[in-house]
């Protein structure tokens, strides 16, 4: 098993470190126990990291602590060299976040193209209006996820998989330096899953650091470089993908082999 802090912190605080967590705990308001506890890890620029673990292990909390949507209760979170507590806004404009699929009212008055454009809000900035270039980026993002023909469709009329693709297009349109993807394969059929897998891997190859949450070992993309295993709010293991998958670390930690963990 990898001792997360020692293995990861030693020699990794170089200029390439994009995410640096040092003894970070996050407690939800009104809760007594932290959702993540004493998490220390380092993710370098260009890494493709998969976070896996059972339900309630703190995977989503970890993502939302990284981009500052949730404020950490203790420890330090530095992203792009910035303290997230102080510079959360700057961090979030440079980070594309795909939220876990949520329910949307079928009669919601939101067109797909406008939802995708809403990903660029922080990038465009206050008191500025979307330019032709912004709309071109939105069109391209929708084309990448195969939803270019759905620009004028209401978001409430999409299937779960189509909605998931629009959320991904929204994050791509942000042109982020880092993607935080929470269960991006949820609701996707096999073909769409393979397409999205390829797209995420392509974006990572082009330089975008990627942190992806999944509850399923089988959904870990081949291009994933590292795996973080979360268990009861702690990092149970963190290391190169092949090593963790080959030496049985994950299955011994999760007590389940080759299936949902």
């Amino acid at each position: 098993m990898y001792t997360t802090r020692n293995d990861l912190m030693s020699g990794s605080k170089g200029p390439k470190a994009v995410v640096l967590l040092d003894k970070v705990s996050t407690v939800y308001e009104g809760e007594r126990f932290p959702a993540i506890r004493d998490v220390s890890l380092c993710i370098n620029a260009g890494d493709f990291v998969c976070v896996i673990g059972p339900n309630g292990s703190g995977k989503t909390t970890l993502l939302e602590t990284v981009n500052g949507i949730l404020r950490n209760t203790s420890g330090n979170v530095r992203v792009f060299g910035l303290d997230v507590t102080e510079s959360g806004h700057s961090v979030r404009t440079r980070t594309g976040y795909v939220i876990q699929n949520f329910e949307i009212d079928p009669l919601s008055p939101f067109l797909c193209k406008n939802v995708v454009m809403s990903g660029r809000v922080g990038k465009i900035g206050l008191l500025r209006f979307p330019s032709e270039r912004d709309w071109a980026i939105v069109d391209e993002s929708m084309r990448l996820v195969g939803m270019d023909s759905s620009a004028d469709r209401p978001i409430g009329k999409l299937s779960g998989g189509e909605f998931q693709k629009i959320l991904l297009a929204r994050a791509i349109a942000q042109e982020p330096e880092m993607f935080l993807l929470d269960e991006p394969f949820a609701n996707l059929d096999l073909k769409s899953r393979a397409d999205v897998d390829r797209l995420i891997s392509d974006l990572n190859r082009k330089g975008a650091t990627t942190v992806m949450v999944s509850h399923d070992i089988d959904s870990i993309p081949f291009s994933c470089s590292h795996i973080i295993v979360m268990n009861r709010g702690r990092v149970a293991a963190f290391g190169p993908r092949d090593e963790l998958l080959q030496n049985g670390v994950i299955s011994s930690l999760m007590k389940v082999r080759g299936s949902a963990v």
């Binding site: 404009t93 939220i99 939101f110 990903g119 990038k123 929204r170 942000q174």
Partner: peptide, 10 residues
Amino acid sequence: FNQKLAKAAG
């Protein structure tokens, strides 16, 4: 559209 996504976008 979504408060959390709005915050995430800056």
